[in-house]
Simulated assay, not measured.
Amino acid sequence: MNLKSISLALIVVLIWGVNFSVIKFGLEELPPILFSSLRFFIVAIPAVFFIPFPKTSVWNVLGVGLFLGVLKFSFLFIAMKADASAGISSLLLQAQVIFTIILSMIIFKEKVSNAQLLGMIIALYGFGFFFFTVDTNITLLGIVLILSAAIFWSVSNVIMKQIKDVNLLHFMVWVSLIPPLPLFILSYIFETHEPLTLLLNSSIKTWISVAYTGYISTLVAFAIWGWLLKNYNSAIVTPFALVIPVIGIISSNILLNEKLNQVEVMGTILILFGLFISVLGNRIYTLVFKTKKRRE
Rank of each mutant, 00 (worst) to 15 (best):
M1H: 14
L3E: 13
L3H: 14
K4A: 15
K4V: 15
S7N: 11
L14H: 03
W16Q: 03
G17M: 07
G17H: 01
V18W: 00
S21T: 10
K24V: 06
F25Q: 03
E28R: 15
L30W: 03
P31Y: 11
P32L: 10
L34S: 03
L34P: 00
F35M: 14
S36L: 06
R39M: 07
F40T: 03
F41G: 06
I42K: 04
A44T: 13
P46N: 10
T56Y: 01
T56C: 06
L62N: 06
G63F: 00
V64I: 12
V64S: 02
F67L: 12
F67N: 00
L68A: 06
F75D: 01
F75G: 01
L76K: 03
A79R: 05
A82T: 07
A82V: 02
A84D: 09
A86V: 13
G87S: 13
G87E: 01
I88M: 10
I88Y: 01
I88S: 00
S89I: 11
L91F: 09
L93S: 08
Q94H: 15
A95L: 12
A95Q: 00
V97S: 01
V97F: 01
F99L: 03
F99M: 02
I101Q: 00
L103F: 12
L103T: 07
S104R: 07
I106P: 01
F108G: 08
N114F: 05
N114T: 15
Q116K: 06
L117R: 04
L117V: 12
Y125P: 11
F127M: 12
F129I: 11
F129C: 14
T133S: 15
V134G: 11
V134H: 02
V134F: 06
I138L: 13
L140C: 11
L140S: 15
G142A: 13
G142I: 11
G142K: 07
V144R: 08
A149N: 03
A150T: 14
F152W: 11
N157I: 08
V158I: 15
K161D: 08
Q162S: 15
Q162E: 09
Q162D: 14
I163M: 13
L177A: 15
P179G: 07
P180C: 12
P182L: 08
P182R: 08
L183P: 00
I185A: 09
E191R: 14
E191Q: 14
T192Y: 02
H193E: 09
E194F: 05
L196N: 13
T197E: 08
L199G: 10
S202T: 09
S203I: 05
A211D: 02
G214F: 04
G214Y: 04
S217F: 01
F222C: 04
A223H: 08
I224R: 02
W225Q: 03
Y232C: 05
N233H: 09
S234L: 06
I236Q: 04
T238Y: 06
V243H: 02
V243T: 14
G248N: 06
I250G: 07
S251C: 14
S251H: 08
S252M: 09
N257C: 10
L260V: 10
L260R: 03
N261P: 05
Q262I: 13
V263A: 15
V265C: 12
M266S: 09
M266H: 11
M266C: 13
G267W: 00
L270V: 12
S278A: 09
V279L: 07
T286P: 00
K292F: 15
K293D: 14
